[in-house]
Structure formats: structure tokens, C-alpha cells
């Protein structure tokens, strides 16, 4: 909108900003108790478009605040480098649809190595391009991680994630929170 100088009355924000705000305000009641004993490790991809290209390090910090809240401080392992210096996953800018598959994967190898280094078994990818690319390079290079949206783990932590909303969870989390009183 800036590029084309299109005037708009609305304010523009992101879900991640709102998640962080709602947690700080106490409106979004969520914690990491579910992962206290499981100790499942998570890392996160900073989407270039949201972080480096639009909202900067503040967005990266908000994302980490949200993630640490829902998985536990000690269960989040950052990639290096990260935040505004993060590497692109290699799926952005239309690369996933551009047809140069070999080059896209060679590009993604940098990201794959970064993820493997963290030894995390789950990667948050709050962007559909990143999500699809990180899954693809995981399969291609033989990684053993799952790729998730924040909303999935947020609902898991709140005990409201439905049985059919677990496509991206590994077997270790498929049944968590399902057998208790919270299911109808």
C-alpha cells in the first residue's frame, strides 16, 4: 500500500502481535504446563516478510514471547542467526511456484542445516510459504522434525485442540489433551 500510495483508514497488524498483546493483558490465558514433563523442543522461523521486511525485530521478539509462553522457556531453541538476520527458508518470493525445484532445495539446505543444529523436533512457521518449504526440505534432506502453526500449539496448550486439527503434529503429540474431560 505504501508502494502504490494507496490511502487506507484501517490500521494494519498481525496475529502474532495480537497474541503477544492478549497474553500480556491476561486475556489469552495460556501456559506451558502441558510440556513440563514432555520437554518437547521447538524452534521457530522468522518469516522475512513479517519480520525483516515489515515489522522488524519487535515482531521477532513478540513471536518468541508467545512461543516461550506456550512451550516453556527451556523448550525453545533459537536458530542462529535469527530475527531480522534470519535466513530466508528459500520458499519465499514465489520460489515454491517458480518451478526451479533443485535450486529451491539447494537454497533451503541452509535453512535445513540451521534447523538440524537446534535438534528441535518442531519448527514454528507462522507463514504458509515458510511452512510448505520447511516441510519439503525436511522430507527431501531426511530431517526428523514437524512444522506447525502457532495456533495449533496455542490450542494444544489451552486444551482445546480438536482431534481433526492435528495434521501437523507428530505421534508424540497426537493424543495430548484428547482423553481428558475437555473433549465432548
Amino acid at each position: 500500500m505504501r508502494k502504490f500510495k494507496i490511502d487506507h483508514k484501517f490500521e494494519f497488524t498481525t496475529l502474532i502481535t495480537l497474541y503477544a498483546q492478549w497474553i500480556r493483558e491476561g486475556k489469552l490465558k495460556v501456559n506451558s504446563d502441558w510440556n513440563k514433563d514432555l520437554k518437547i523442543k521447538f524452534t521457530a522461523q522468522d518469516p522475512c516478510n513479517m519480520v525483516r521486511k515489515t515489522w522488524g525485530q519487535k515482531m521477532a521478539d513478540d513471536m518468541r514471547f508467545v512461543i516461550r509462553t506456550i512451550v516453556g522457556e527451556e523448550n525453545f531453541i533459537d536458530m542462529v542467526p535469527n530475527g531480522i538476520n534470519n535466513y530466508c527458508c528459500g520458499g519465499g518470493g514465489g520460489a515454491l511456484q517458480a518451478g526451479f525445484t533443485d535450486q529451491r532445495r539447494a537454497y533451503g539446505k541452509v535453512k535445513f542445516n540451521q534447523i538440524q543444529e537446534t535438534r528441535a523436533t518442531y519448527v514454528f512457521a507462522p507463514c504458509h510459504n515458510c511452512h510448505a518449504q520447511i516441510e519439503d526440505i525436511g522430507h527431501h534432506f531426511g530431517g526428523h522434525y514437524n512444522v506447525v502453526h502457532i495456533w495449533t500449539i496455542m490450542c494444544l496448550a489451552m486444551g482445546v485442540l480438536g482431534e481433526n486439527e492435528r495434521t501437523y503434529l507428530g505421534d508424540d503429540l497426537k493424543d495430548i489433551g484428547l482423553n481428558k474431560e475437555d473433549q465432548p
Binding site: M1, F4, H8, K9, F10, T14, P126
Partner: peptide
């Protein structure tokens, strides 16, 4: 094409829905 999409979107939000905040999804 990019400009057209944005213009249509902005018009709809500002004039039809009048939502004060647009949220980009995950």
C-alpha cells in the same frame, strides 16, 4: 495486478466493512 488487488481490498474494508484494524494471518 498487485495494485488492483490492494485497491479492491482497501475499498472493501474502508467502505463496506468499516473495520478499523486489518490483521495479517499466520
Amino acid at each position: 495486478g498487485w495494485r488492483y488487488i490492494l485497491e479492491e481490498f482497501v475499498y472493501h474494508i474502508d467502505n463496506t466493512l468499516k473495520c478499523p484494524v486489518v490483521v495479517n494471518t499466520e
